[in-house]
């Protein structure tokens, strides 16, 4: 069933993961911190693009799922085995995505964007209210997990996200989503259950974002709603995925890596203007690279082919 190119891509992917897994042995503490950030955004942006790439629905719910995941760890780590928390967060994330998806994916794109943004805020307010009632400000997540453990866990999660994306791409579900992205009316009239396909993919991205939050909670040590549910996260994920391009599975990571370094520089030099600069980055990407690096590459390739055809 598999073609040679697919075997080659799989081999390249596996090699890159092994290389990435070696980072803690060669790099210092600073590189590892960057590595964790990149791995985190790779999972978030890639799983975001699995849903938003083909459907063109812009979800700003990443922070809601991520926060749900951090709170799963925060509230559960003293009661449950740590290794159960990440899968549990994924299940909760998928369930939340299913509820939100069933309620909103019938809406047109604009309403969906606003609803997802509102969702993260709503949950944040609920958690804040809950903490006020119980008299706590935040939660301490004290574990003996180090940065290296977190990094490796994120890498495994990233590998799972890529594998899921690759399997979906080869499946009827993946084909259905491409058709939905092209013309939803045609999709419906071809016999595709469009609502189910969209909800399923939204669940995958919700599960991945919640699992990421659950893995990262021990790194924050102290979690509070403003940190766990920050809307900034949702916007950053969208920007990175769009910068890389959502047309390919490997697109988002191509955006994540340069953006992480850019963001490090911005946060260090202009700590008070981050939101403004994030907005500028967003505008720049939309105007200069509307289809991301993936789109740029496709354009260049087409032009080169055209030139060959004329010469």
């Amino acid at each position: 069933m598999m073609t040679t190119t697919e075997y080659r891509n799989l081999a390249i992917g596996a090699a890159l993961f092994i290389l990435a897994a070696c980072l803690p042995f060669v790099g210092g503490a600073y590189l590892l911190t960057i590595g964790v950030t990149i791995a985190m955004y790779t999972v978030l942006a890639t799983s975001w693009a699995l849903f938003s790439g083909p459907t063109h629905y812009i979800s700003l719910a990443t922070a809601a799922f991520f926060g749900l995941g951090t709170y799963t760890t925060g509230l559960g780590f003293e009661h449950l085995d740590y290794w159960l928390l990440v899968p549990l967060a994924a299940i909760l994330g998928a369930a939340l995505a299913a509820i939100v998806g069933v309620a909103t994916l019938r809406l047109s794109g604009v309403y969906f964007v606003i609803f997802t943004l509102g969702l993260a805020e709503l949950i944040r307010q609920l958690v804040t209210w809950g903490q006020n009632v119980s008299g706590q400000k935040g939660l301490y997540v004290l574990t003996d997990l180090t940065e290296v453990h977190i990094y490796w866990q994120l890498l495994v999660l990233a590998a799972l996200v890529y594998l899921t994306g690759w399997l979906i791409g080869r499946s009827r579900l993946g084909f259905a989503l491409r058709i939905i992205g092209d013309d939803e009316e045609v999709a419906r009239h071809s016999g595709i259950n469009t609502a189910r396909a969209k909800v399923l993919l939204f669940m995958v991205s919700g599960a991945a974002a919640a699992a990421t939050g659950a893995i990262l909670a021990p790194r924050y040590i102290y979690i509070e709603p403003a940190l766990a549910f920050t809307p900034m996260l949702s916007f950053q994920v969208v920007i990175m995925a769009l910068l890389g391009g959502t047309g390919r599975l490997w697109g988002p990571v191509v955006g994540v890596i340069p953006f992480t370094f850019l963001w490090e520089a911005i946060s260090a030099s202009f700590p008070n203007q981050t939101t403004l600069l994030l907005g500028l980055c967003f505008l720049a990407i939309v105007f200069i690279l509307p289809k991301g690096f993936v789109g740029l590459l496709t354009t260049i390739r087409t032009r080169m082919n055209a030139r060959e055809a004329f010469s």
């Binding site: 084909f175 491409r178 058709i179 992205g181 092209d182 013309d183 009316e185 045609v186 999709a187």
Partner: peptide
Amino acid sequence: RLLPSMTVLDNVRAG
């Protein structure tokens, strides 16, 4: 109404 990002064959495969 065709599926603009796809080839002729993929359009027909949809059916």
